[in-house]
Design a protein around this nucleic acid. Structure first.
Lengths: 211, 211
DNA sequence: GTCTATAGGGTGATAGAC
DNA sequence: GTCTATCACCCTATAGAC
């Protein structure tokens, strides 16, 4: 959907149905015919993006937690795999850049209609992340686990959110840079593992970012 | 400025000069007389907010770094004080909630004009943070230090950015909750200190969030 | 400096022919 | 389903009286 690209970059208010129609060589009236209204089209785009970028790995890991929850080394690996999935979903070329940016707009300004979609598509992942972290540190209460989820998501989201700003800073690498993605993955995972006082996997042992 | 509140909540595109004028019982023409255009008013608001919420503590600490840089315990305390300042500036009631939200909009969608302001008012703080972290871990290169700054800022910004979303999650505390602010401060600081492998200050020793 | 009035243009949505 | 034409509205910005 070409609409998403415009919504992502200029917001709902900053995008006109006319611009959307022009971008995909369609008719203004046709857009309204298919989607009812601009507002509704926005919701359709959001649902599409959230479906595309859903993360399942935390839920998968929780489904077979008995295989790893008692081994701190495997807990650390679980963290790694979860961070890896999120970076794949948002940073790599799997999805166009505007997917992430739509997500950011949604987080910044959620309407009740938007929240229904998030409750269905986003919340389960956050819930899984929370319980996964609780598995890594048995006895951790919900409030503290939420802080850990916030820390993880915050670090990752920041790169999408502030991408345009960071790009203007001289000497910074682009988010599409493969080596940069790997550095972020390694860095964030290490912070989480060290913070949760889990054993550091050998493949994450000290190795400084290149540039 | 009442304009900022509207810009913060609905974005530039979603805010009309009429609404601004109405909110402060002024005339539509008067607004344009004083600020030239809506776009310019937006820039004035941004500059005002960034000036108000500037953080100086990192720069202050760097100015007298010889007092602490060789003592890991004092390094850890420096980290704490920097995080504390940022939380004070953005979470507590010192500034109205819309200050933070304007900041988020600016990060999400920086124009060249906006960036000039950020270069002047925001970049110095990020630079100071980077060098401060490098002081804590001598020999750390710029790329890695940037990752650390990103992690710190990402964790903090996330709470402002996704505030509305997080509020809808059942059982979550409000960001204005004083105990919550303290939990976040303690949590983020601990992550940074543990991640940088500095000694944990006694006042941050284990203590679980309440709720 | 502040107001009214208005210009000049863009907006979302729809009616009705094809 | 797709198009043209059009409605009714809201927008920014300004000219000109006070």
């Amino acid at each position: 959907m070409a609409a998403g690209e415009l919504f992502a970059e200029h917001g709902v208010e900053g995008t006109s149905v006319r611009a959307i129609a022009a971008k995909c060589n369609a008719n203004i009236a046709a857009v309204n015919y298919h989607f009812g209204s601009k507002e509704n089209l926005y919701l359709v785009v959001i649902r599409y993006v959230l479906e595309q970028t859903q993360c399942y790995r935390a839920a998968e890991l929780m489904a077979r937690k008995q295989e790893w929850e008692h081994d701190p080394h495997k807990c650390a690996e679980a963290i790694y795999r979860v961070v890896e999935e999120h970076i794949q979903q948002f940073f790599t070329g799997i999805h166009p850049r505007w997917h992430g940016r739509i997500f950011m707009r949604v987080l910044l300004q959620p309407t009740p209609a938007i929240w229904e979609i998030m409750e269905e598509l986003t919340m389960p992942n956050l819930e899984s992340l929370r319980t996964l972290i609780q598995c890594c540190r048995p006895g951790m209460n919900d409030a503290e686990a939420e802080l850990w989820v916030d820390s993880l998501m915050g670090q990752l989201i920041h790169y999408i959110f502030a991408e345009d700003f960071l790009l203007i800073v001289p000497g910074r690498r682009k988010l599409s840079d493969n080596a940069y993605q790997k550095d972020i993955l390694r860095h964030v995972t290490r912070i989480m593992i060290r913070g949760l006082e889990l054993p550091m996997p050998t493949f994450l042992e000290e190795e400084v970012p290149h540039a």
